[in-house]
Simulated scan of single mutants.
Amino acid sequence: MDATAAAAAAALVFTWLGMVLAISFVEAPLKFRAPGVTVPVGLGIGRLVFRALNSIEALFAVGLAVAVAAGSAPASVGVPTIVAVVLLVAQLAAVRPALNRRSERVLAGEDLPRSRVHHAYVALECAKVAALLAVGIAVLGR
């Protein structure tokens, strides 16, 4: 992998990884522990934050894919890149719509039990973190 593509890929992957870790694993669970934050308020904030995060993630995914393809990356970089992108697509296409439908119902006043779909999002998020780490380590090892 050429140096310019590797540098671009490293910058993109570690920025993407940092954003996911900060928002999904720090901000999201902590906001519900803040004084005065109700479930509807937390859901409203979460929807805005995750919509922004996912939009930025999509840009990072495209940029990373371009850097990896343009830099003639080896399989040790290409495969986890594909995995990370596929996991993001699964989150956006399969899980987020279900979470959005559920949050709409909660915001409309329905009293619903905890969502199992949320666990699927978290599992995909953990797998995506692992894939991004693999990409970053492989890129730095080049």
Rank of each mutant, 00 (worst) to 15 (best):
T81M: 08
V117K: 00
V83A: 08
L43K: 00
L30H: 12
S24N: 13
T4I: 13
R101H: 06
A108I: 13
E110A: 15
V135I: 10
A28G: 05
V79L: 05
L124P: 07
L53Y: 00
V83R: 05
V106Y: 05
A65Y: 04
A58W: 10
F14M: 12
G18L: 08
R96M: 11
W16R: 01
V20M: 05
V135F: 09
I45F: 02
R101S: 13
S115C: 08
L17Y: 07
E125R: 03
H119F: 06
T4Q: 14
A58C: 06
A134N: 01
S103D: 14
A22C: 14
H119P: 00
A67L: 12
L107V: 11
L133P: 07
V62R: 01
A120K: 10
A61T: 13
V79F: 01
L64A: 06
R96C: 00
A98C: 01
V89G: 03
A130Q: 04
N100F: 06
V26D: 04
A75I: 03
V39L: 11
D2E: 11
L53E: 03
A52T: 09
A73M: 02
S103R: 12
V41F: 05
R47F: 03
A22F: 10
M19H: 03
V122N: 00
T15H: 02
V77D: 06
P97S: 02
A134D: 12
E57I: 00
A94S: 07
P74L: 02
F50T: 08
L99N: 03
G141P: 04
S115G: 02
A84T: 02
L43S: 04
D2M: 09
V106S: 01
A134T: 08
A7W: 14
P97C: 04
A90W: 11
G42W: 09
A123W: 13
V139P: 07
A3Y: 12
L112C: 14
F25N: 08
A7Y: 14
F25Q: 07
L132W: 07
N100M: 08
V95G: 05
L112F: 11
E110W: 13
H118E: 01
A127I: 10
T15W: 10
I82M: 08
V77F: 09
R105N: 14
A123D: 13
K128E: 14
R51S: 05
V37R: 05
A8T: 15
L64G: 09
V13G: 05
L112H: 12
A130I: 05
F60W: 07
A58R: 13
L12K: 08
L112Y: 11
T4N: 14
V66C: 01
R101T: 11
I45R: 00
E110M: 10
A5P: 09
S55L: 03
S72T: 08
L107G: 12
A58F: 10
L43I: 08
E125F: 01
A65D: 04
I56Y: 03
G63R: 12
V86E: 09
A84N: 00
I82A: 13
G42K: 03
I56T: 11
V26I: 13
S72W: 08
R142F: 03
S103C: 02
R142G: 14
V106Q: 06
L64H: 01
D111M: 09
P35C: 13
G109P: 11
G63Y: 09
I56R: 03
A6H: 02
L112N: 13
A131Y: 07
A123C: 06
I23R: 00
P97F: 06
A61D: 13
L140Y: 10
I23E: 05
V77R: 04
